[in-house]
Structures are given as C-alpha cells and as structure tokens.
Amino acid sequence: MEFKETQPIYLQIADYVCEKIVTKAWNAEERIPAVRELAVQLEVNPNTVMRTYEFLQQKDILYNQRGVGLFVAAEGAKNALKYRQSEFIQKEMPSFFRSMVLLQMDVSDLESYFKKYKKSNP
C-alpha cells in the first residue's frame, strides 16, 4: 500500500479496511486480520494498525471479542459506507468542486463520464 503524505497513515488504513468491508471482501461477523498480521502485510508499525482498529471500533465498524480477535460489526458495512461517504464529502468534494468552477464545468457535464466509468468498473 502506498501512503499519501496528506493524510495520517492510520486513517488511510481505515479507508483500506472500510473498502474491504464495503466490497464484501470482509463480511459481517467475520474475523479480520490481527494487528500484527495487517501491520506486516501493509509494512507499518503495529501501533498504527492498533490505532486504526480502535478508531473503527469507535465508529461501530469493528468490534473486539476479548481473547478471540476483531470482527466486522453486524452493521459494519453500513457504518463503513456512511463513514467513507462523509469523508469523501468533507475532504475530496471541495477540491473537486473548486476544479469544476475553475474549468467552468457543470455537474451535467460529468454525467456521461460517470456512466462510462461505472460501465468499465462494475
């Protein structure tokens, strides 16, 4: 995983975990990789992964079953989607909208590009 300097690593890992949950790679009530396992896989410090997991537990995306491990919460996919939508709206859309205004584009100008993207990326 390549990390950007514009966002804390633990939040980028949170996005990665949420993507796994939203795309159903990790399902509700399913055990997820242990802290050390994911840290090795992503080549980061285990403390960073622990911080990510704690953050996602606060968002009711994950839950800890003491002595067993971390699991995707029953409403984890819904909560992960809500979290990612909120992050997108707050962090990415303002820059995107600034570019649209600068380029004198309207939302209707994007519709055909969006449809084409969805067709080629189901």
Rank of each mutant, 00 (worst) to 15 (best):
M1C: 10
E2K: 15
F3H: 01
K4M: 02
E5P: 01
I9Y: 05
I9S: 05
L11Y: 14
Q12K: 05
Q12N: 03
Q12P: 05
A14W: 01
A14M: 04
D15A: 03
Y16T: 03
V17A: 03
V17T: 02
V17P: 01
V22K: 04
K24V: 01
N27C: 11
N27T: 09
A28T: 07
E29S: 09
E30T: 07
R31C: 09
P33E: 00
A34I: 05
A34Q: 12
R36F: 10
R36E: 12
E37W: 04
E37P: 00
L38G: 02
A39C: 01
A39W: 00
L42E: 00
V44R: 10
N45H: 15
P46Q: 08
P46M: 07
N47H: 13
N47S: 15
T48M: 04
M50V: 04
M50H: 12
E54F: 13
F55D: 00
F55L: 05
Q57W: 03
Q58L: 13
K59C: 08
I61K: 05
I61N: 03
Y63Q: 04
N64C: 11
N64D: 11
N64R: 13
N64K: 15
Q65W: 13
R66C: 08
G69F: 10
G69R: 11
G69A: 09
A73K: 01
A74W: 00
A77F: 00
K78L: 10
K78M: 14
L81Q: 14
L81R: 14
Y83K: 05
Q85Y: 14
Q85V: 11
Q85P: 00
S86P: 00
E87D: 15
I89L: 15
K91D: 11
K91T: 13
K91G: 11
E92V: 03
P94Y: 10
S95E: 13
F96I: 05
M100V: 05
V101T: 07
L102Q: 12
L103T: 06
D106S: 08
D106N: 11
E111C: 08
S112C: 02
S112W: 00
F114A: 14
K119S: 09
S120M: 12
P122H: 14
